[in-house]
């Protein structure tokens, strides 16, 4: 690959470009169109890996490796970490709230793309010199020579920038504890003083027939109690509502009864349901339906 022609590329590289380039564009589009942040991040990682391949194809071996290691490896993992922190299952609504924002954005993006294309098309970029000569002592050595001679000050300053960014991140995220943490005893006494909720919080799903941490336990009257779910999940809004579960079960029971009695009209209206009577499968289907319902809100 080092001996690339100055004017045109090899057929192999052209093939690689068209295939991977298409994938990269699709990945980029997916990045901005996926409703869940975690999907976006994965698509972006894919695009970045393809870009790394392109770097390699262009003779930037060092950058290609750095792209994979630093970008895809470190930075994207940082993204994923933050996504996890914020809530991995939270999906964004793609409904636009600002009037005209989406159309304006599309117009701007499209117009900008056209402008860039026009600019590139107008520039005389026919004669590619190729990197054969620059890379003859090795790409990394060539870069090192430049970094430690011509760009040494910029390099030092980026070092300072990184340190500053590290400190800045720490300052932003770190919270100083201003008072001693309360012991368990003190917490218990406080609860007694307030008289609000003396016993330990109820476990999730205990009073219902479910045993998952994100499912609120039902009170005797059938309403879900938020107290039963962990605070973190509550704040993220990731509580699954199972108050309709009983009705669903009833409906499933009726369905099964219908199936057994072989009433064809009902079967035709609900062909997705199989009447094998497996309660676990029933529940899973119900939960999935609910989730889509919730997400479409």
């Amino acid at each position: 690959m080092t001996a690339l022609a100055a004017y045109t590329t090899s057929t192999g590289e052209a093939f690689q470009f068209w295939v991977l380039g298409t994938v990269a564009v699709i990945g980029a589009l997916c990045t901005i169109l996926m409703r869940k942040a975690v999907h976006s991040a994965l698509c972006l990682a894919g695009t970045m890996i393809i870009l790394a391949v392109f770097y390699l194809a262009n003779g930037a071996y060092f950058l290609g490796i750095v792209q994979i290691v630093v970008y895809t490896g470190a930075i994207m993992m940082l993204f994923l970490f933050v996504v996890m922190l914020v809530g991995v299952t939270a999906a964004d609504s793609l409904k636009e709230t600002i009037k005209g924002q989406r159309w304006l954005a599309l117009l701007c993006g499209l117009g900008f793309a056209i402008l860039l294309f026009a600019g590139i098309g107008n520039a005389s970029l026919k004669d590619f010199n190729g990197l054969a000569k620059a890379n003859e002592n090795g790409n990394v050595e060539g870069l090192a020579t430049l970094i430690f001679t011509k760009y040494v000050f910029a390099f030092e300053i980026t070092g300072a920038l990184l340190i500053t960014a590290t400190v800045g991140a720490m300052v932003l995220t770190h919270r100083e504890r201003t008072e001693r943490a309360k012991t368990q005893r003190e917490l218990a006494e406080e609860r007694v003083r307030e008289g609000k909720h003396l016993p330990p919080l109820p476990a999730p799903g205990v009073y219902a027939r479910h045993n998952a941490v994100d499912i609120a336990g039902l009170l005797p009257d059938g309403t879900p109690s938020e107290l039963t779910v962990s605070r973190t999940l509550r704040e993220r809004g990731q509580i699954r509502d199972v108050s309709t579960e009983a009705l669903n079960d009833l409906r499933a029971l009726e369905q099964r009864a219908t199936d057994r009695l072989e009433r064809p009209d009902l079967r035709r209206t609900d062909p997705g349901r199989n009447g094998d009577g497996d309660p676990a499968a029933e529940r899973a289907a119900a939960v999935a339906g609910e989730q889509t319902e919730e997400a479409s809100k």
Binding site: A24, V25, A28, L29, T31, I32, T47, A105, L106, C108, G109, L110, F112, A113, L116, F117, I120
Partner: peptide
């Protein structure tokens, strides 16, 4: 250029 425009959008 295309990727840049997509990112900006």
């Amino acid at each position: 250029a295309l990727l840049f425009a997509i990112g900006a959008t």
